[in-house]
Write a protein that binds this DNA or RNA. Structure first.
Lengths: 211, 211
DNA sequence: TTATTTCTACCTGTTTCCAGGTATTTTTTC
DNA sequence: GAAAAAATACCTGGAAACAGGTAGAAATAA
C-alpha cells in the first residue's frame, strides 16, 4: 500500500473472533487495527468519519448480510478494500462477494501468517483467498460434478409450481398453457434430473438448492 | 471446583477462535489454559497423559464430530467437564451434546464475562448455557410451532422410501407388505402433513428436516 | 442466415396416485 | 384388563402421473 502501516478495521459479531484477529495481527507492524465492530451499521457510521484502508468483514452479521454491507462500503468509500471472512465455504458465496467488490475471501480456519500475507496481497491490489478457499474454487464445482441440469425459464417455473403441490392441470391453468405442454416440460424435468417421479425430483432439486 | 485455578483446554480448528478464547480468559486468574488443540485426536492423546478439569469443545472439527468426541472424552476422563462451543444453535444439537454428557452449550458470540461465568457455573457442577442458547431452548420449538406431525415407525420408513423414489408397489415389495397396506400408510402421511400429494409431502418433510 | 434451443401442443396407453371409505389384528399404554 | 394407538388389509373409482413417441412455431445463438 504505502509507507505507513495500513489502517484495518474488523467487523464481526463474535467477540472471540475479534479478539483472536487482533491477537494474530498484533505482531504485524505494517498493519494497525483502527477499530473493531460487531454490527454493520456501527462500522458504516464509523467509515463516514474515518479512513480505512482495509476491512475484514464477517459475512453473517446480525443486522445486515455481508453482501449488502460490502456494497454499502464500496459506495461510501470505494478505495477501502474489503476482505470477506467467513465460516461458509460455498462457491456461490465467494462469487457473490467478489461480484460486490470484495478483494478476497478468507475462511476462519486461516493461520496467522496466511492472514497477514492475504492482507498484504489485498493491499497490493490483488484478489486473495485463504488456502482452503483456493482449493474449493480450483476444483470443479459440485454443480458440475453432480451434473446439476441447466433448466430453461419455463422449466424452473414449472418445477417451482410442482414443488408447491400443483398438478399438471393446475399448472396449465396458472400459466395459461395446455396441460399437454405442461406435461412435456414435466417430462423434460424428470429426464434432466434423471429421476423417475416427482418425489425424487423434489428431493434432488432441494438437495441441489434449486428450491 | 477447588482452591487452585482450574485447568482448561480448548479444542477448535480455528486459530482465530483459539487466540480469541485465550485472550478472553487471560484475566480470569481462576482459570488457566492448559492447552489448545486443533483436532479431536490431538486432544484425546493429550488427555490420556494429563488432567483437565474442563474443556471448551468446538462441535465441528475436521477429524471427529463434537458429539462423538464428547463421548470419548467422558469415557477417558469422566471427571472432565465438557462445554460445547459452537456457531450452530439448533435445539437438536444442544440436546444431543447434553445427552453425550456435555455440561453446557455456548455460542461463539458469547461475551468475555459470560464465558468466564459459564465456566465457573460448569465447574460448580451446573448445566450452563450462553444467553442466546437459553433463549432458543426456552421458547417453544419450531417443531411444536409448525405442528410437525409425530410419525409412527412404519410411517417414517415409508416416507423414507417414497423420498427415494419408490412407488407403492415397490415399497410393498421391499417391506414385504400388501400394496394396500402401504397405501394406507401413505394416506396417513398425507393427512398428517396436511398435504395433497408427494411433491408437497417431500418438500415439507425436507423443510422440517425429517429427510 | 442458418442452426440450435426452447416453447408449444398433440396422441396412446399403462401405471400409480389419491379420496372415500371399512375392518381385523397386534402392540402399547394406562 | 380395558382402552387407545398402530399396523395390517381390503374395496371402488376417478384423477393424475409416467413412458413412449411426433411435430410445428418462436426465440436465440452462431
Amino acid at each position: 500500500m504505502s509507507d505507513k502501516s495500513a489502517r484495518l478495521a474488523i467487523v464481526d459479531d463474535h467477540l472471540i473472533v475479534l479478539e483472536g484477529l487482533q491477537q494474530l495481527l498484533l505482531h504485524a507492524e505494517t498493519i494497525s487495527v483502527a477499530g473493531s465492530f460487531t454490527t454493520g451499521t456501527e462500522f458504516l457510521s464509523f467509515l463516514k468519519k474515518n479512513t480505512i484502508d482495509i476491512v475484514l468483514l464477517d459475512i453473517s452479521l446480525p443486522d445486515i448480510n455481508g453482501i449488502d454491507l460490502c456494497l454499502e462500503i464500496k459506495k461510501l468509500s470505494p478505495s477501502t478494500i474489503v476482505l470477506a471472512l467467513s465460516n461458509h465455504s460455498e462457491r456461490s458465496m465467494v462469487l457473490q462477494m467478489l461480484q460486490q467488490g470484495a478483494s478476497g475471501y478468507l475462511l476462519k480456519n486461516i493461520s496467522g501468517e496466511e492472514l497477514v500475507a492475504c492482507i498484504h496481497e489485498a493491499l497490493d491490489g490483488q484478489i486473495t483467498f485463504s488456502q482452503a478457499v483456493k482449493e474449493i474454487m480450483s476444483r470443479p464445482s459440485v454443480t458440475e460434478l453432480k451434473g446439476v441440469p441447466r433448466l430453461t425459464k419455463r422449466e424452473k417455473e414449472i418445477l417451482q409450481l410442482i414443488a408447491e403441490g400443483q398438478t399438471t392441470p393446475d399448472i396449465a391453468a396458472t400459466l395459461h398453457l395446455s396441460p399437454l405442454t405442461v406435461e412435456t416440460h414435466r417430462k423434460s424435468l424428470l429426464q434432466k434430473f434423471e429421476v423417475k417421479n416427482v418425489a425424487l425430483l423434489i428431493r434432488t432439486a432441494v438437495e441441489q438448492k434449486l428450491l
